[in-house]
Computed example of a mutant assay.
Amino acid sequence: MSREKSLKNKVILITGASSGLGEQIAYESSLKGAIVILAARRIEKLREVQKTCEKLSGKKAYVFHLDISDPEEIEEVLEKTSAEVGPIDVLVNNAGFGHFEDFRTVDMNIAEKMMRVNVLGLMYTSQFAAIQMAERGKGHIINICSMSGKIATPKSTIYSASKFAVLGFSNALRLDLKPLNVGVTTVNLGPVKTDFFDLADKNGDYLEKVGQLALDPKNVAHQVVSIMGTSKRELNLPKIMEFASRAYILFPKIGDFLAGTAFNKK
């Protein structure tokens, strides 16, 4: 896939855009002159993000209520965006949530919901977007994944499972769509300073424990937007965790030791 020279007037759909990383990606995309479509459940928060995006881009931004766990609503929203805004140039699958807990006490209703949101919801949006993009012979799907999809750690059994699934799905989807000039990139992140941990971390001190490993969402958003329209396979942040993920594959026993000690901050 060729590199886009500019995001000006490109249509970018961002799920989970009401706060955190999704919100920052929306702002960074708007700064580049893109037309952003903001999707999430919290419609009032989306309205606030919409106003800022319109100020930054000087263009209309669009808001859609989206429960990513509902396939019918996903299809409805994708059809509406195509009709009201136009075909999607870049899809950013950002919606998702985490939950850190010893597996023996995990409520399996949470596990089922996480798989519906983190995995199946992402698959549905990707499929609808891929169909449109393949027909046009261009497009880019960016799946916000996690280093938890490369390095499993204690108390992240369900979350890691969901992200391992997203990574495997994305790698296969990349091969499916490459002949059609549609790119697929995974963004594998360590901890990001967002409200994600309000739900994921019961103790409320995880970000403090990881210290300098925690990523600035504005910086991450900048890097994500910089790869839009490129053929980049994956973006891994922070770099030290990218190195650790490679060592985890090459030296699994050492990897398990580090995952259970140095990277076990939950």
Rank of each mutant, 00 (worst) to 15 (best):
L235T: 04
N236I: 14
M147G: 00
S146L: 03
D67S: 07
G204M: 02
D205K: 10
I141P: 04
V36R: 11
M241D: 02
K163M: 02
I37Q: 05
C53F: 09
E75L: 15
G86L: 00
E234N: 13
H99K: 13
V187E: 01
S6I: 07
R174K: 06
N203S: 15
V187A: 01
V224N: 10
A129K: 02
K155E: 12
K265R: 15
Q212M: 12
S69T: 15
T230K: 09
G255S: 07
L180M: 06
N203D: 15
S19Y: 10
L167Y: 10
Y159L: 04
F251N: 11
F169P: 05
K202C: 07
A247L: 15
E84L: 10
K45W: 14
F103C: 08
L91Y: 09
S245N: 07
T230W: 13
M241L: 15
F196E: 05
G58F: 06
A129I: 02
D216M: 06
G96S: 07
S19P: 06
S30H: 12
Q24N: 15
R136S: 01
N181A: 04
A83D: 15
I131L: 11
V166H: 01
T186Y: 04
F196R: 03
C145F: 05
N143G: 03
P71A: 05
L177W: 03
N109Y: 10
V166T: 02
R174A: 09
S170W: 01
K45A: 15
R104A: 15
L199K: 14
G98S: 12
F263R: 08
E28K: 12
T194Q: 00
R3N: 14
Y62L: 11
L173G: 01
L180E: 11
T15H: 02
R104F: 14
K59T: 00
L38F: 06
G22C: 04
I35G: 05
M123A: 10
A165Y: 09
A152C: 07
S245I: 13
A165F: 06
P191Y: 07
E76W: 14
Y159S: 05
T15D: 03
K155Y: 13
I35W: 05
A39F: 11
K55M: 13
K266Y: 15
Y248W: 11
R41M: 03
S162P: 00
G96V: 08
L177Y: 09
V187P: 04
G86K: 00
G20V: 09
K32W: 05
I35H: 00
N94P: 10
I74N: 11
V220S: 03
I43S: 04
V192T: 08
A165G: 02
C145R: 04
K59N: 09
I227G: 02
E28Y: 04
I25S: 03
T157H: 07
T125V: 10
K55A: 14
G121M: 04
L78C: 12
Q50T: 00
E72I: 09
E72V: 08
L237V: 03
P217E: 03
R42T: 07
A130K: 00
